[in-house]
Write a protein that binds this DNA or RNA. Structure first.
Lengths: 340, 340
DNA sequence: TTGAAAGCGCTAACAT
DNA sequence: ATGTTAGCGCTTTCAA
């Protein structure tokens, strides 16, 4: 079909090794360089990465397994990682496992068959069973957003504890003493951390436990909607609600709209992620904004370092934690003491 | 490193061909099947797709080149395609070219080197120069969302003309006779079609040309914001505004919020795409909803058919057009005659 | 610096 | 139905 190195060798009268050396940054005499380049031009030669991969056992391909491509956070992180990896000559194969453990496991197997050099994973299976067989190959795995107990690999996470604690503090600073929080599934480390942050900050601020209502959503819009309803159905109406994930934020807001609850007159709200969505709200939503770019950079760096260090004595797992930031809109109302 | 077919052959005492035949759906005696399966289990064997790809010149990998992964439309389409392709054993390598022609061209070259079996492309370069060399390989290309004159390949598009014409009709049915439209860049066929739909429907409804204001955005949020401002700065204030792309919808709405313009009291609005976003608005936004799932299915089907038919006499290019649908919210106000 | 040759793991043609 | 063998396009010793 297309031209091969052999064709270049024939065309130039050089040996295969010289051509290969040319492509791999070896020393080739200037005259021969030119000859090779002319032949490449003439024959429209292009390196066959498949053959190269077979020989070197390095495909220059990274597997990525995420719960949902529709998930804003995941999409943004992937976007930036792709950017960085492409610059280093790496391709990415992204598998969306639809938050399904079985599909997650299958995705890892699929990528293993394709001999990806490494794996990025926002894990769904919090036991990490899906990673065991891949890790045996000695290829690196970088976990994003969630840690897994007992799986020793690099991780990059938002400082989830502090992100929500900050949200609580902002509410308190505006006079809110009865708070609701929509949490994610507690099997997920990120969701646990966020809840811990909530409780810890409430305690620190002297907010009574009875005044902290939490409802557990499933990180979907529908779950956020249900959880919002649940919180408002309780006896103690909170004056402020913190939502700890983007999809649930959208879902909760849709439901609040449907219920005719005005933000922030009837309820103050702090959402999560997606600054553009927040700005399109009326009034503009106050949110916790995750640093997707920084996460992607940190993850890509860890990964590339591991790949290059393949064969060396494996260093211990690194855990990078990156702070989130509050972006204030107008969805948190300042309330006076007597409204408590 | 990991086990090979040869290891399986040794372990079972069978020949290589039998093992290969086993993996490729050939006839293998039941007893031998079991032996092979036992050996696979024991040696943790997994097929090496790289080697297979080299031999067959089929990588079972599809390249995807899109302007923006952040683009909701693209993300949804990709998501569904991945789903379908994975079921057929195909992986996808997605390249986000950031709406940059140079990067788009590089992405195609990158994927060509990796010997992808086919290409999905939402083209940025409306001349199609980036595809020429790939098409020479005889591998199929399916264009999504946008056609390119002079490039004969399968395309799958929304019925953009009618989508916007329907939006105009909805406005008119609610008494609107002065309309603004935010269009996309006119180099893009989809944007051209949408503008054509606007003009055609206005004419059909007898709306004076002077009462149709259009402003051209660049398919980004910022562009949408600017275009919205431009339209409202004109002398003839339209009573209704149609926005022909999702990002511009978000941008325009943010700007309208900032300008203190109420929807639909001060201005009726029909947006584009992302039903969840629309529902989260207050009032709920009326939108044109593109059929991403159907587009993905049609595109995947065309692609798989082409791949399987490789070598056969190439059929002529097919063009699939899929209708969009209006999803009504509360952002279009019914106005009375005298307000004209 | 360059050439010759072996071999990465697989498939497929041919022989049995 | 199964075994034997050549070779896909590349990298990488080893010699020259």
């Amino acid at each position: 079909m297309s031209a091969t190195m052999k064709d270049i060798a024939n065309e130039t009268g050089l040996g295969l090794a010289t051509i290969s050396s040319y492509f791999n940054g070896g020393n080739v005499r200037p005259g021969n360089r030119e000859k090779i380049e002319a032949a490449i031009e003439k024959l429209h030669y292009e390196i066959n990465e498949t053959a190269r991969g077979l020989k070197t056992d390095r495909t220059r391909t990274i597997g990525v397994v995420i719960p949902e491509l529709q998930n804003m956070f995941a999409a943004k992180v992937i976007c930036h990682m792709e950017d960085i990896l492409l610059k280093h000559g790496y391709a990415m194969i992204v598998c969306d496992c639809r938050t399904d453990r079985k599909r997650e496991r299958e995705a890892v197997e699929f990528l293993k068959k394709r001999r990806v050099d490494a794996l990025f994973n926002i894990p769904v299976d919090n036991e990490g069973g899906h990673l065991k067989s891949f890790l045996k190959t000695g290829r690196p795995v970088v976990l994003i957003d969630r840690e897994i107990k007992g799986i020793a690999c690099d991780t990059v996470c938002t400082d989830n504890f502090r992100a929500i604690a900050d949200a609580v503090r902002l509410m308190a600073a505006n006079g809110h003493r009865r708070l609701g929080m929509i949490t994610g599934p507690q099997e997920i480390s990120a969701a646990r951390e966020r809840l811990r942050g909530f409780r810890s900050a409430c305690e620190e601020l002297g907010i009574a436990e009875a005044d902290c209502v939490t409802a557990c959503g499933d990180d979907t819009m529908e779950g956020g909607a249900r959880a919002a309803e649940e919180i408002l159905a309780g006896e103690k109406h909170p004056t402020g609600m913190i939502i700890s994930n983007y999809s649930m934020t959208v879902g909760a807001i849709i439901r609040l709209n449907e219920m005719g609850i005005s933000i922030p007159e009837d309820l103050s709200v702090i959402g999560f992620d997606n600054i553009n969505f927040a700005k399109a709200m009326n009034p503009v939503l106050t949110i916790v904004d995750q640093p997707e770019t920084l996460i992607a950079e940190a993850a890509a760096e860890l990964l590339l370092k591991r790949i290059e260090a393949a064969g060396d004595e494996a260093e211990g797992a690194r855990h990078v934690v990156i702070p989130a930031r509050m972006v204030e809109g107008r969805s948190v109302r300042k309330i006076r003491g007597e409204e408590k």
